[in-house]
């Protein structure tokens, strides 16, 4: 079985396609039954989505004056 304390490692591996079919199934099963880990999954997915979004987005700069500003 998958222990909650390993969830982030597994979610990273799942994202990178590193999980065997069995481990993938165990992860999915665990996410069905464990809401804290489901939340962890959501946060992880939001992180990946945000990172992908940065690819075509100029940096958000909090501390420098620059002509570049992300389009809101």
């Amino acid at each position: 079985m998958l222990a909650c304390k390993h969830i982030h490692e597994r979610l990273n591996e799942a994202h990178d396609g590193e999980l065997s079919p069995l481990r993938r199934m165990l992860l999915r099963l665990h996410l069905w039954i464990c809401s804290p880990c489901r939340n962890a999954d959501c946060s992880m997915k939001a992180t990946f989505k945000a990172l992908r979004g940065l690819r075509d987005c100029p940096p958000f700069k909090a501390d420098v004056t620059s002509p570049e500003k992300p389009t809101e």
């Binding site: 969830i7 939340n39 939001a46 940065l54």
Partner: peptide, 23 residues
Amino acid sequence: FGPQHTRQPDAQIDPQMAMRIVD
């Protein structure tokens, strides 16, 4: 015991805000 989350279930994630925080 695993992850501790302050996140509310089904919380709406504003993509632009998420990008800003991550950046």
